[in-house]
Design a protein around this nucleic acid. Structure first.
Lengths: 131, 131
DNA sequence: GCAATCATGTAATGTTATTACATCAATTGC
DNA sequence: GCAATTGATGTAATAACATTACATGATTGC
C-alpha cells in the first residue's frame, strides 16, 4: 500500500517512536505527547493502528509495545515476515528479515492448509553487551 | 527439569486448560474455577507461572492467553522452539516444532552474539475449515 | 449547500497483570 | 520438640493495557 500523508496525530506518534531508543508502550507515548495536546489513550491507539497498517511501525506482542520500523527502504511493498531480537538487559530491539525462515514457515503452513495473515517472531534474550 | 507433583491450584488450572477446546485467558480460567474456590486473579497467575516453568502450558503472546502443551511425550526435557498457528475464525491453535527453523534462528542470533532465552513464533490466519 | 467520509476529542469502561501484605502448612536443623 | 525457613495460599488494592460509545470538526465530491 502507498503510504498516504500522515495526519497530525500520526506524525506526532511516528516522531515519538522514531526518536526513541527502544520500544514504547501506548501509554508511554501518550505521556510523551501530553505537551502536544494528547489527552487520551485512544488518540495514541488510533494513530498506531494506521501506522501499523502502513507498515511504519511494528507491534511487539511479548512487550505490549511498539517500535518504528527500521527498514530503510520505502514502505510501498510488503517486507514479508519481520522478526525481532529483544534484549532483556538494555531493551534494545533488532529487527531482521530472513527469506529461509519465511520459506520454511510457508511450507509448514501450506501443509496444514493454513492461510497466514500475520506472523510474529520475537526472540527474548540478552544482546552482546548485556550477557 | 523434572516436573514435581502439582499443587491443588496448579492441578485445577492444568485441568481447566486441558479440557478446553482452545486457549483461555487468565480471567476466563478464573471464572471457570470459581466453583472450586478461586477468588482472585493471582491464584490463576501463580499457578500459570509454575505450569509455564514446567513446560506444561504455553503462553500465546498475541492473544494474552494460555494453552495446554499438546506435546505427547513427557516434559522432562526441552522441546526447543515451539510455534503456533492460530485461527482467527474458530480459535483453533495448533502447536508445532521444526528443527530447520530452530537451526536457522540459532544461526541468525549467533551472528548477532545474541543469547536466546525464549522464542515466540505465532502465526495468525485462517485454518482449513475457516477460509 | 449538503451528504459522505475521515480525523479528532472526551469519558467511561473493559481486560490483563502485578504489588503488598497476611496466613498457613511442610520441612529442616538444632 | 520447636524455632526457623521455605513454599503455597488468600485477599485487597492497584497498575498497565486496550476498547466502546458518543459527540464534534474538517474535507471532499456532487
Amino acid at each position: 500500500m502507498a503510504t498516504p500523508q500522515l495526519t497530525k496525530n500520526q506524525t506526532l506518534v511516528m516522531d515519538a517512536l522514531s526518536h526513541s531508543e527502544g520500544p514504547m508502550s501506548a501509554y508511554t507515548i501518550l505521556d510523551k505527547l501530553r505537551d502536544h495536546g494528547f489527552r487520551a489513550p485512544l488518540q495514541v491507539y488510533r494513530a498506531l493502528d494506521k501506522l501499523l497498517e502502513y507498515g511504519l511501525v511494528h507491534r511487539l506482542e511479548s512487550l505490549n509495545a511498539f517500535v518504528a520500523c527500521s527498514c530503510p527502504h520505502d514502505h510501498e511493498h510488503d517486507h514479508g515476515v519481520t522478526a525481532f531480537t529483544i534484549c532483556e538487559g538494555c531493551g534494545q530491539v533488532t529487527e531482521f528479515h530472513d527469506e529461509a525462515i519465511e520459506q520454511r514457515l510457508s511450507t509448514l503452513t501450506r501443509a496444514q492448509n493454513f492461510k497466514t495473515e500475520k506472523t510474529t517472531i520475537e526472540i527474548r534474550g540478552h544482546c552482546q553487551s548485556c550477557v
